[in-house]
Design a protein around this nucleic acid. Structure first.
Lengths: 196, 196
DNA sequence: CGAGGAAGTCAACGCGTGTTGGCAAACAAT
DNA sequence: ATTGTTTGCCAACACGCGTTGACTTCCTCG
């Protein structure tokens, strides 16, 4: 007899609708990234995914639920204790650029965070849970970590803002190596230099 | 005969409705700054200004017209040729902080620019017409000015983003002198240091 | 085959939005 | 006092939104 993938009755390990669910998530990520929360309509997302708007509701309950499912961020920050002290800045900037360019979720979150209170809280959470710990691990003075992490975040998010959201031509035209060469030392100073 | 203020018939220099017009603009600026373009509704703005929504339309034609009238930005960038070469970075950061904290229009524009295409274009225009010229005036290599200006903008807008829009606690708690001390040298490097 | 449930479509609801035109009051000028 | 204009309110329109429930179609398993 022909053996199909799922073996258990109660919890089908893979559903027939998985393709549709994924299509919805893809379309949602794209719309949220390019238009923000309010302008990205469920109807438009459904159209992109070639299904009826009501399917989005069935699978993700509400627009908020869809956003929560579509936008989950893991910065995958590397273990900086392995990296030589003086190369930390460049390593971080390189990593950030790579993450941002391969992952439209980050742009979506930044766009939404700028107008939506829940989006802003989400970004605060990522900063607190993923960026701050790394800063604590690297920087010399433990009590100065929040300030140093905030400075690093301001420079990196500012680059993302001007380059991927506002799309200032001058920022878009910078190439990655150039960015690393300029921002690397800055981040390095913010993280490890003595208070100026 | 009694002479009233306006002397000419066709263009009354001051109208009786000026107070209302100003109240609308104030309310609009506040709403746009705190909620962005789409969430700031004409009805809410009218409620804040204690008038009927239809008055907003009569005076400003459309929501877009209201936004255009409410948000006009002059960065008032100082003449940097008067400032000693090595103090330019700190001077710029200080000026930016002052402008941003006294003027909610800038926050409004940043919020709107992140979700609204027209808002983004508006910010590009400000960058092109107000920031770029100053960079050209200051930095050593003429052809490097756009890149240098973009770097400066990324750092300054990133600070505004994390501090005034996303309100990261660590960024909000920084005090102004501290920010000047950290960002001043960064901006200085971006503007005048040799390509690294 | 036939039953049962999952996947998907369709039409509609209630709501809030930007926007419009008509009408009452307040003021200005003759 | 009477006219005309400005200032304002009110009620309504058309539209698009998120969301809902009933209905058809398709697959899968006895």
């Amino acid at each position: 007899m022909l053996v199909t993938m799922p073996t258990s009755k109660p919890v089908p390990a893979s559903r027939r609708s998985d393709a549709t669910r994924a299509a919805i998530l893809d379309a949602a990520r794209e719309r949220f990234a390019t238009e923000g929360y309010e302008r990205a309509t469920i109807r438009a997302i459904a159209r992109d995914a070639n299904i009826d708007p009501s399917m989005v509701m069935r699978y993700y309950v509400s627009k908020e639920g869809l956003f929560a499912a579509a936008v989950s961020v893991d910065l995958e920050l590397p273990d900086l204790s392995q990296v030589p002290r003086e190369a930390v800045g460049r390593a971080l900037v390189t990593h950030f650029l790579a993450m941002w360019e391969e992952n439209e979720v980050l742009t979506a979150l930044l766009r939404v965070g700028a107008t939506n209170p829940a989006g802003a809280e989400r970004m605060q959470g990522i900063f607190r849970d993923q960026v701050l710990p790394v800063a604590r691990q690297v920087c010399p003075d433990p009590e100065g970590a929040p300030a140093r992490a905030a400075l690093v975040a301001s420079q990196l998010l500012g680059l993302a803002l001007t380059r991927y959201v506002l799309r200032f031509p001058s920022a878009v035209e910078l190439d990655r190596e150039e960015i690393v060469a300029w921002l690397g030392p800055t981040v390095q100073v913010y993280l490890s230099s003595a208070h100026p």
